[in-house]
Structure formats: structure tokens, C-alpha cells
Design a protein around this nucleic acid. Sequence first.
DNA 1: AAATCTAGCAACCGCCAAATT
DNA 2: GAATTTGGCGGTTGCTAGATT
Length: 316
Amino acid sequence: MGRTPFCSSDGLKKGAWTAEEDQKLISYIQKHGKGGWRFLPKKAGLQRCGKSCRLRWANYLRPGIKRGDFTPEEDKTIIELQAELGNRWAAIARHLPNRTDNEIKNYWNAHLKKRLANMGADQVTVSGAASSSGNSDSNAVTDTECAKPQSEATKQRSASALLLNKLATRVTQCVGPLQASQTLQQPTMPFNGGAENSDIFCHRLPSSTPESTSWADNNNICNSLTMPECGTTNAIDERDSSSSAGVLNDIVASEFASLTCVDELSDWGNTNYSIEPEEVQIDYSDSMTVGYGGLWDDDVIVVDDNDYTVGSLGFL
DNA sequence: AAATCTAGCAACCGCCAAATT
DNA sequence: GAATTTGGCGGTTGCTAGATT
């Protein structure tokens, strides 16, 4: 039995397509339409496998294909859909007009997956991270829940929430269990406050007092924080809500003394991963709960080493 | 300047499912 | 209903250009 090979390799050319071959394929399809790939190469005068012709047409030659830089919106869509669907690139591509599954797959493998890996996404310990069957993605799911099929509720959780869950895990692993187990705080973070690229945002949640929120404008805060105490001044009150320029580094230093920078998120493509409060369902006993907000270029995760829980997000 | 390494990407391969015979 | 064909999908490979040593 067996199906006959879609194409025999006898005498057929492999490797990169030439401009002449492209033109032959385009001309043929324009004239006769696509399909019938088995016999198309011969009819078109190509020494190529039909399958190769189909791929070349689908991924590069068909009209309207968008190539090159992915927009932040596309990044966001890919990340969210990958979390939801796993490595079903064709399904993901249907949500990105004129992008091919192959390009999305390559982009994921070359860029987006590394971003997750860099921030510890390979150590997912909360449920909800997508792990499609047969998926060879490097994400190592360590929580037993993750090995189970996703519940509908979990599937609906956004990729952004998952991302933050991963961050929380990463942060916890880096600094050890924090004392305070916090519930999610309501959003008082100034996401529209005009903070700038490479800002550092720290969200401290003292267990017995209303949250205080501060932020800094210093690309190198992780290296510069040497002062001992976390202050209680709420820098948010002193800051021009339209700009971060007024926040002085010395205020920052005193405000975030003893904080430890544990990770850096780079190149998140200016994408704002907005989180709905109900999406973040982390409950690390004796650990920490991360806040919610947007992730941006050069974000820095900062946590304190006292009993404060810090969900930290930089933003543009 | 040459050798080596690395990242990105185009293309191939094997498998699968739907369609057709 | 079985066999076969076809198109599609996802994983992987290998080439190439740029970066690094």
C-alpha cells in the first residue's frame, strides 16, 4: 500500500528558488490557478517537487503576503494565541492577515520563545500554560496541573496573565519564598502616567497597610540601589502624572533601597499586555502575588527582600 | 584578515486528515 | 468501506550573513 510519494526526488532540484523559477510558478498560477500540485511543476516547466511549489507559492509568492518586521500588535497576538492554542501555527496565522504560518513559526522560535526563556518561562509552575500535544516547545512544565488538559476557564485566561504568572514564578525562584502572601491589589499603578522607556516600576504591597506605589526613572537602578531601607513615602504622590522626568534618582534609591533586581525583560516589542484583575489567579502560599499591568521594552523586575511582595513592571 | 560562532530564515521532510476514486 | 491522492501542518535542517574571537 502506501501512498505514492507526493513527488519523486529523481532529477528534481532542491534548495533556494531562483527568480526565474519564481516567475515560472507565478506565471503558471496566474494563468491556470493553483492546485493540482503534483503535475504543476511539469506543466510549468519546473524541475521541482509539487510540494515544494505549493510551499513556495503559499509562503512567498502568493499576493498580499506581508513580510518583515512584526508589529507590537502582532507580537501580542502571537503570544496570546500561542498560549491559548499551542504551536498550531496555521491556526495562529489565520488571526494575522497576510502572515504565513511558516513565518510566524520562525518568528516565534527565533524571537518570542527566547524572550519567554530569558524570563524563566521554562519553569512554569502555575496551571494554564499551553502545552499542546506533541509540542516540542522547550517550555518545561513542572506543575502537575500543567500536564492535564486545560480547563475551559484556564484556556480563557489570557497569555498576558500567563506571562505574569511565569514572571511571578521566576521572581520567586530567584529570591526565595517571600514572607507575605498577598492577594491581588486593585490597579493604582499609573499605567497612563507617561513613564518612559526603561523605567522601572515597583509595586510594593505591605501586608498591613494600604499599598504604596513608586517608580523610578533610571536604567541602571539595579546596579545603583545600595541603601538599606524601603521607605514609606509614596512617590506616586510627588510625581507629575504626565511624566516620569520629575522623579529623581535619589528618591528612587531611598524608596527602593534593598530591592533586588532579579530579572530583566528586554525587547517586548512595545506591546502592552493588559491584564484583567480576574485573570491573575496566582496564589503562592508564603510566596508572592504579582500585580498586573503592562510589559514593555527593557522592563525590569524588582522585588524586595523584606516582607514586601513586589509585583514589578516597567512600562513605556 | 581569517577562522569560528551564532542567529535568522527558507526550505525540506514526515506525518496526518480530508477528499476522491 | 478500502485504497489512494492531495493538501496542509509542524518539526527540523542547512545555508547564509553578520558578529565575534
